[in-house]
Amino acid sequence: MLSRSAQGLYWMGRYLERAQHGCRLLTDQMEAIEDQPVDQVDRRWRRIYTGLGRAPLAGGLESSRGDDVFMLVDAFTLADDLTFEPNNPDAIRSCLAAARENARQVRNLIGKDMWSRLNVAYLELREAGITEIWKDRPAEFYVRSEDAVRAFLGIADSTMYRDAGWHFLELGRFVERAQALASLLDAQLAVFPSAEPNVESAWHSLLRICEARMAYRRLHSVEYQPHTVVDFIVADTRLSRSIRHALGRVSESLEAISGGEPLAPEASRRVGRMAARIDDGWPRRDPDDDSSARSVLQEIRQSLWDLDADITSAYFDYDVRDRLPEAG
């Protein structure tokens, strides 16, 4: 397929995943505001901002310490920053707009139903604003927004022909998912160190964000042990929002795209190394010492950046002249 189209589908996938991740973070956060103590809410904002690698608005986190009124005012400002702020490229609305712009580039390749669903979601979000959503339960707004993304992906899943186009969309989604999870876990350990007692709610919320709570309870326990939770979200291949699952999907799509030819060997090797790192060495550590886990998570984050560069140079942005057939 045309390189520019493949790139459009890849980025459409990345931005949709990013938008969805934002919705999940904020759904959780809005509910925290309803029932968590102020200092817990404050720390969760720190987790979100650390995970996104974004500096909160000046003083936004400091001023909320110990004061319920300020906390709510700040929540309004911070949620606005992460949802509607035009200068924040990772704000949910910016992500959806970027996904739609990419979809527009590849509209001849995606079905009318896919396009309309995304377009309507964007048009609705464009009309929304923090003041309106604050009047009602803001959490519901984020659930609705995530549902719009999920509906789009459901239509894609049930309508798209499984050619390279589909796999570039998948590739974008799961590279982004692995990246978002690695960042979130690293931020979690930075803000809520495993050795610290009595922060059950923070681990509960992490599991929720990763759609992992029910499975965790059935598999492990109703008590949340930090290192078990982290291991679960890093390494369990059966959990859709785990790093290892995402890497598996990335690997499958890379294979489907190359069709057995060595088109992007470096990308495949890199994913293989990341997966092997998790499968072989990951869980063995002192449950109260996060440093080795955090350093692996940071390595994975770096590898995912490099993977993005591998994919770009193999499929989107190579020098055509290098690969022309021999003259004659």
Binding site: M1, N108, Y315, Y318, V320, P325
Partner: peptide
């Protein structure tokens, strides 16, 4: 395919488009 000018390349009098599997 819907192409833009920068997706095409002319070499030795022939026109190619940049695809994920090469020109």
């Amino acid at each position: 395919e819907l192409v833009e000018g920068s997706d095409l390349l002319v070499d030795d009098g022939r026109v190619y488009m940049r695809t994920t599997r090469g020109p």
